[in-house]
Design a protein around this nucleic acid. Structure first.
Length: 268
DNA sequence: AGGAAAACCTGCGTGC
DNA sequence: TGCACGCAGGTTTTCC
């Protein structure tokens, strides 16, 4: 489900409602997510901040950090009053003011993890590429990461050690906007193309975050679909339809077991 | 080591 | 209507 913009939209959607809140208790109805949910020692602890690193949400507490990943189908919303538990609503974090942060995840590819040390050093975060909207994510970085790699560029930009936050939709969309074929070996991109791709990854993610902000549905007391917002895609999921730029037919293939969409006329 | 494939799950649409 | 199948916005683990 969520790529970086959806995770960031979730973060913003719930953060203001949980500022300064203190945990009363955690209720785990289904401990089996991507990994078993460990003991979360946060009862009585005040939430200091909700941050984001790549597609992970970091709930900062005085004694450690709760790492949450939404996987493919995870979502979070804040309830201001008790609401009947629906299917796939696996975790509640109950706050002393009565609010509930409720996690739903039908496919259970998501994760709840705990660390009491620097979360950046956590094995799942330590090797991630820099944030794509930060200065450290630059052409030097991308050039180094793409060098000598034979893997297709579309697969490479979905590798979190190369680029974080770009999932299957925005990989196709960024390559379309950069005019680069997803089939190209990563190392075959020249400096110009790398710069273009980097700029389009940035602007695609930034635009999607902005769209999330404008079409943001309520993350409080919503119907459980919080976390999704409509995306207008140029090529993703548009196989056989006209390319919005040239009108030629959008093509589809499969790379690393994921669908890829592109315009063979506009992308080289 | 890099790269390809399998693995973890449930739900939904399609076609027979 | 039922059922098999393929596919879904992710990422780690395993295997070659």
């Amino acid at each position: 489900m969520p790529e970086l913009p959806e995770v960031e939209t979730t973060r913003r959607g719930i953060a203001s409602h949980l500022a300064q809140a203190t945990v009363r208790q955690v209720i785990v109805r289904t401990p089996r997510l991507r990994w078993p949910i460990p003991e979360l020692p946060i009862a009585g602890q005040p939430l200091l901040a909700i941050e984001r690193r790549a597609k992970y949400l970091l709930f900062r507490f005085p004694n450690g950090t709760l790492l949450v990943h939404l996987g493919m189908t995870g979502s979070l919303r804040v309830l201001t009053r008790p609401q009947a538990v629906q299917a796939h609503e696996h975790v509640d974090i109950e706050w002393v003011d009565g609010r509930i942060l409720r996690y739903r995840d039908p496919r259970r590819f998501g994760a709840f993890l705990w660390t009491d040390s620097d979360p950046e050093q956590h094995p799942l975060l330590a090797r991630l590429a820099p944030e794509p909207l930060c200065a450290q994510f630059d052409t030097d970085w991308l050039t180094r990461k793409l060098a000598r790699r034979s893997t297709p560029i579309k697969v490479a930009i979905m590798d979190a050690q190369c680029v974080v936050g770009v999932g299957n939709i925005y990989a196709s969309e960024s390559l379309f906007r950069a005019g680069i074929s997803p089939l190209r070996p990563a190392a075959s991109l020249n400096a110009n193309e790398i710069a273009r791709l980097l700029a389009e990854i940035r602007s695609t993610l930034a635009a999607a975050i902005a769209a999330g902000g404008t079409t943001l549905r309520d993350y409080v007391d919503s119907d459980g679909k919080a976390g999704y917002f409509s995306l207008q895609c140029a090529v993703y999921d548009r196989a056989g339809l006209p390319c919005p730029h040239c009108g030629q037919v959008v093509a589809q293939t499969r790379q690393a077991q994921r669908a890829t969409y592109w315009c063979p006329h506009c992308q080289h």
